[in-house]
Structure formats: C-alpha cells, structure tokens
Design a protein around this nucleic acid. Structure first.
Lengths: 239, 239
DNA sequence: CGTAACTTTGAAATAGCTCAAAAATTGTGG
DNA sequence: CCACAATTTTTGAGCTATTTCAAAGTTACG
C-alpha cells in the first residue's frame, strides 16, 4: 500500500526494515475521494495526515473574486499534508483533481514515530522540506518565467516526480488535468495556456492532449524551462 | 543571543527549560556578514544551519538572463536555512541584504536534539513548515494578486513577523530594502514598484520611505492585500 | 445522441514592462 | 562638513505579454 511512498523515500535515503514497519503501522485506515472534492479545508483542526495512494490532488487557495491558485500538485506516494502533523491545521485547501485512493495516518502514530525513530522522523521532515523546495521553484516560475517556460517547467517537474514511482512511460505520462487546471497552477488564464500549449507543440517540445503529456524533445524542453532537477533532491545521500 | 528565536517559538508552543538549554547548546559559533554578501550558495554541501541574530537576509534564485527572484525575507530570530539540516544542501542562495549578525548550529548538534528532544524537534520541524506556508502565500501573491495587492500583502506579512520579535513600533517598522529588492520579491520591475508605492501612498494605505514602512490604514491595507494572518500560525496551541 | 464540459480561435483591452533621462538621496574621502 | 560620485527614486512615452470577452468547434459521457 505504501510502496510508492517507500520508493520516494528510498530514492533519497536508506529506510530500514524497522522503519518500514513503523511507517506501515502509521496507517490506520484508507478511503476514497471523487474528482473535484475538497478533502481538507484551510483552518479546520486536523488529527491525521493524508497519504495519496492513487490519483491526482492539489493544494490551493482562493481569492475574494473567486480566482484560484494551485500551489502544488501531488501524485501517488505523496503526503497531501504531512505538514499538518506539526501545524495542526492547514493554511490552504486540498482537493482531489481525479478520483483518489487515500490512506490516513493519525498524528498520534506519527508522534510515536517522532519519539521512537529519529532517523525516520528526519526523513519525514525531509519530505515536508521537499514540498517547500517545490514551492520555491514555483515562486520562481510565477515571479520570473514566461508563460511557456512556466508550463514547460511544470511538465519537466511532473515528469521526474511521476517517473520515480513508475508512472511515466519513457517521455510520456498521464496527467488528468484540464487546461483551466494548468492555468490555476501557473497563474495564467486558460485561454493563454491554450495558446502557449500550441506554441510548445509547434516548437516540437511537448504536447498535451487528452490528459497525457508527451515530451518530444526533453533537452529542448528543459532548456526553455531552465529546468534543473536539483531542487527535487534525487541523489541518494546519507542524512 | 537566541532570544528572538525563543520569542517566535514561544508564540506557537511551550518551550521548556531543558529544551531552551538544548537550543542554546546547539549554537557553536557566531559571525557577521556585510550587506549584499551571498552567504550560502545553492548546491554546496552544508554541515550547519545559520540563525539570523540581526539584520535582514533573503533566499533567492537567478535565471539565465540574470533576473532574480527572492523567495523569502528573513529577520532576526529566523533560521536562514534550518531545512539544510535534512536537505544537506540548498536549492537556492542566501544573501545578506543588510549587515548581519549570524549564529551557527552544526547539524550534528541538531541531530542530537532530534534524538533526545522529540518535542523540540517537532517545533523545529514546525519552523520549516512555517517557511513553506510563507512560500505558499507568495505563490498566491505572484500567481493571482495585482501589483498593489502583492506589495500591500508583503508589508502586512512583515509587519506581523517583525512585530512579534519587538521590531515594529506600532504601525511603523524598519525595512532596509531598495525598491529594486521589493521588485525581486514580488516578481515586478522596480519601475512598476515605484509607481505602485505611489498609488498605495496616495490611497493613504502605506508609505515606504527611507527604508521604513509606515502603515497609515492597517485595515484598509489588509483589505486590499486580502491579508489573513492565519498562515503565520500565531495562535499558541499544544503541538 | 444530446448536453455539458472542454478546447480553440479572434479581436480588443490592459497591467505591467522597457528604455531613457532627470531628480533626489546617500555615502565617502578629503 | 563639503563636494562629488554612486545609488536610488521618480517620471515619461511607447510597447508587449497576457487578459478579457465572446463565440465556434470538439470531446466525453449519461
């Protein structure tokens, strides 16, 4: 069940059998969420974390006028809100973008881990720091990259993140988003996303059609995006 | 020396005398940095964390064309890179914006804390999650807020963050930045920052002059910014 | 197989950018 | 404490990336 989570952790550090057991033991329950369901609302008191097993989910905030900004996308093996363990409530909402399978880890069990497994605790801490690194890269995208670089960068990021849990087929991967969702990720209009996708396609870099991304020129795409995977901390190193 | 750090932690949770002692013991050394010095470069191997004692410092990344995006501002009592404890290298640079006094906490001492003080560890973990929450709010600003709302929001954020360590004098605080620095925070041009500041001033909301921010209409400013301090997790609650 | 959701395109509007130069402020050496 | 050099702020004028509004295609699916 937590296989994809383990794949992600093990891409970064060693996870011992006792630690694996502790992690499995942290899951109390599982559940599902239909597409478009907001599963966690900003501000509500939380006593468990949500691990995504299957599907696509996002963190977002809305503005008064109804405009929405997505701050991160999550795929299988990601915690939707591991940070709620220390924060106890979120500053943002979490929504299923596709039908999702979820697992729940009560905070009390994570607290037991934090008492008994310092190394595993640091690894979980690392995971939340990785989310922050992704946020920073998005800050750079939204602040300084052009529309095409932003979208190119997002496609590069997701390619790496999905590939590491076996969800990319070479240069192609499933990404069940609408162009409007993409717009909400990248601080753009869906109209402009549409035109920008056309650009990227005509330049022979990527195409996004029917919910799948096909990268036609990986190094070209990475170049326009100025994509450097360093911020995803993929090299395994002792921590 | 770590008084301001303690103020910040205690605004969120109880810190016991043993924990305070452990924290003081984590500091091995202190140092200074002149204005405009990059003190940590992306990618370099790190074996200690930097706590800011005095001054102003930022996290930033550059693009190929030389454009820069600042991702967070830090004041006294903030760790510049507590996340380097789990990440071991940073995905961004850290630069002193004014002359700074710094304290250094070797990772090995933090690791000892993570073995011996689970509650304090969770509190440090919390601090890095708070940085992520600030990143998310910036993602929202850069993605969806107008120039004036962005700048208004930044001034609101800094007002709260500086006030909690006694660095605000009512509605006024020192902020030793140029308009160009502000532009690099908010994904704008310094020219546009200049015009936007004029707007905000003429609307009677804030003025920024000679490195000090004076808020003339706090609720008005918060309204245009859609500022809700929830993301700063200021309410003290057991964790 | 009809209807809702999504994508695509066009045309006009605008927020924010660029380039350029003047005015104000700040810091520094003498 | 002055003078001048450097930095920062301010303003103008034209430009462009992205938005807005609107409508026509296309796709998916109940």
């Amino acid at each position: 069940m937590i296989e994809k989570l383990l794949m992600k952790l093990r891409a970064r550090d060693h996870v011992g059998p006792d630690e694996e057991r502790a992690l499995r033991g942290a899951i109390a329950d599982t559940g599902i969420a239909p597409a478009d369901r907001t599963i966690i609302r900003a501000g509500e008191e939380l006593d468990h974390c949500v691990l995504l097993l299957e599907g696509l989910l996002c963190r977002y905030k809305d503005l008064r006028n109804g405009e929405r900004q997505i701050m991160e996308l999550h795929g299988p093996g990601d915690f939707a809100d591991l940070h709620s363990f220390t924060l106890k409530r979120l500053d943002h909402n979490v929504m299923a973008l596709t039908p999702c399978r979820l697992a729940f880890a009560p905070h009390e069990r994570l607290e037991a881990i934090s008492r008994e497994h310092p190394h595993l605790t640091r690894l979980l801490w690392f995971s939340t720091n990785l989310d922050a690194a992704i946020h920073r890269e998005w800050v750079l995208s939204l602040g300084r990259r052009t529309a095409s670089a932003r979208i190119a960068h997002l496609f590069c990021e997701l390619h790496v993140r999905l590939d590491m849990v076996g969800l990319a087929d070479g240069l192609e991967y499933r990404l069940d988003l609408t162009q409007a969702d993409l717009a909400e990720c990248m601080g753009l209009t869906s109209v402009h996303v549409n035109r920008t996708l056309k650009d990227l396609r005509e330049q022979g870099l990527v195409s996004f059609k029917g919910g799948t991304v096909r990268i036609d020129d990986l190094s070209g795409l990475r170049h326009v995006a100025e994509f450097d995977p360093g911020y995803l901390y993929l090299d395994r190193r002792p921590r």
